[in-house]
C-alpha cells in the first residue's frame, strides 16, 4: 500500500533502522533454544522456547518480535527466530528411547520433518544468523557446511556460536579451525557465560 511504503520510507529517513531478523541455526541439540531463551530472558524477562534433552523439542520456528538489546551504548532491535535443528535424518524410534510411545514418537517425527523444511525455507529470509555448534562435538558436519554455504551465497552475515563451553570436553578452537572465515564467539547459553561478547557481535552486524 502506498501509505505503508511512505510511512516506512519516513521511518528510514529519520534514522530508525529496520528491525533485524536474526535466525538461530544449527544441528539438533546444540543448544539453540537454550540460547534463544537466554537472549529473551536477558532482554525481555521471558523465555521463548521449551527445552529438553529429547531431540527435536523445537519443531516449528519460534519467534520473539522486537527484542531490544542495549550494548556498548547502542540499541539494537531484533526479531529473534529460534529454528528447529537441521538434520538429514529423523527416526521416530530414537524418540522412543526417551520413553515416548510409538504413536507419539511418529507424530513427533512428522512434526520434526516439517519444522526442518520450514527452517530451511527461512534461510533466504533472515537478515543475519547465529549458527550454533556444540563445542564438544566435531564441527565439520555436512549440516554445518550446507547451512553456512547457503548463508554465504546470499551474503547473510553469520556469527558462529561455540556453545556449551561450561563442559570439560568443550574445544571451541576446533570450530575456529574448521571455519576460519567466520567470527566465532564461545559461550555457555546455559550458564550465561560470555553473552556480552555475543551481544556485541550481534550489534556490530545490525549496524552494518
Amino acid at each position: 500500500m502506498p501509505f505503508t511504503r511512505f510511512f516506512s520510507w519516513l521511518k528510514g529517513f529519520f534514522g530508525n533502522r529496520k528491525t533485524m531478523s536474526l535466525g538461530i541455526y544449527g544441528n539438533v541439540n546444540t543448544g539453540k533454544s537454550t540460547l534463544a531463551n537466554r537472549i529473551c530472558v536477558d532482554w525481555t524477562g521471558e523465555p521463548l522456547s521449551e527445552v529438553s534433552e529429547v531431540p527435536h523439542e523445537t519443531r516449528e520456528v519460534k519467534k520473539k518480535e522486537r527484542v531490544v538489546i542495549h550494548v556498548g551504548g547502542r540499541k539494537v532491535t531484533i526479531n529473534l527466530l529460534d529454528m528447529p535443528g537441521i538434520t538429514t535424518r529423523v527416526d521416530y524410534r530414537e524418540f522412543m528411547k526417551y520413553g515416548i510411545g510409538a504413536k507419539k514418537a511418529q507424530q513427533r517425527a512428522k512434526e520434526a520433518t516439517k519444522g526442518i523444511i520450514e527452517a530451511i525455507k527461512w534461510l533466504e529470509h533472515v537478515d543475519a544468523a547465529l549458527v550454533v555448534m556444540d563445542a564438544c562435538d566435531d564441527p565439520y558436519t555436512q549440516v554445518n557446511i550446507t547451512i553456512l554455504g547457503n548463508l554465504e551465497a546470499r551474503k547473510i552475515p553469520v556469527v558462529l556460536v561455540a556453545n556449551k563451553i561450561d563442559r570439560k570436553e568443550a574445544r571451541p578452537e576446533r570450530i575456529k579451525e574448521a571455519f576460519p572465515q567466520h567470527e566465532v564467539i564461545s559461550i555457555s547459553a546455559l550458564k550465561g557465560d560470555n553473552m556480552n561478547a555475543l551481544y556485541e557481535a550481534i550489534a556490530a552486524h545490525a549496524s552494518r
Partner: peptide, 17 residues
C-alpha cells in the same frame, strides 16, 4: 552445490516416514 544440498535436505524430509 550448496543450493542443491539444501534442496536435497528438503526432499529427504518430505520422504521420511
Amino acid at each position: 552445490t550448496r543450493e542443491e544440498e539444501r534442496e536435497l535436505f528438503t526432499r529427504v524430509m518430505k520422504e521420511i516416514g
